[in-house]
Amino acid sequence: MSEQSSQWHDLADRVEALALKLKLHVEQASTDREVADAIGRLRAEVDDAFQAAGNAMHDDAVRDDFREVGRLLTDALDTTFTKVDAQVRGLFEHRAGQ
């Protein structure tokens, strides 16, 4: 199993464990069967969503989109930090000149 797949499985396991803990707390606080059923359905839906996300990562187009989003995010952060760096340097230069 690749590291990426392992990470998705770890995340899905954590979400499932969290959902179980929440379900137990709700069941302790309430005997209302509808609430317990709703929690069960929510857990199943979250599990399905993570399964779909994991499956999507096997799609080359999805992986390419993730890479492009990552590249765009990196470029945006780089531009922002370069601008902040220039502003901070200007502030220090201004204060040093006073």
Rank of each mutant, 00 (worst) to 15 (best):
G90K: 09
V46I: 10
H58M: 04
E68S: 10
L18Y: 15
D64A: 15
K23Y: 11
D32Q: 01
F66I: 07
Q98N: 14
F92T: 04
A49L: 09
L77T: 04
E3S: 11
K83H: 09
A38G: 03
T82L: 08
V62L: 07
Q51S: 14
A52F: 01
R95Q: 11
T31R: 13
S6W: 00
V69Q: 14
V88P: 01
S2K: 06
D37G: 09
V46G: 00
D13E: 15
L22E: 05
E3N: 10
R95E: 14
A19V: 04
D10I: 02
G40V: 04
H94Q: 14
E27Y: 02
R14N: 12
H94L: 08
R89D: 15
H9I: 01
A61Y: 07
A38E: 10
T31E: 13
K23S: 15
V35H: 08
D37C: 07
R95C: 02
A49R: 07
K21G: 05
S30C: 01
Q51I: 00
N55Q: 09
T74G: 03
L42E: 05
D48T: 03
A44K: 09
E3I: 00
F92A: 08
M1Y: 07
T82F: 08
D78M: 01
I39G: 06
F92M: 02
R63P: 08
L20F: 11
V88E: 08
D47W: 06
L77P: 05
D64T: 14
F81D: 03
Q28I: 01
D59W: 05
E3W: 10
D47Y: 11
V15D: 09
R95D: 09
R41N: 10
Q87E: 14
L91P: 00
D60A: 15
V26P: 04
Q7D: 13
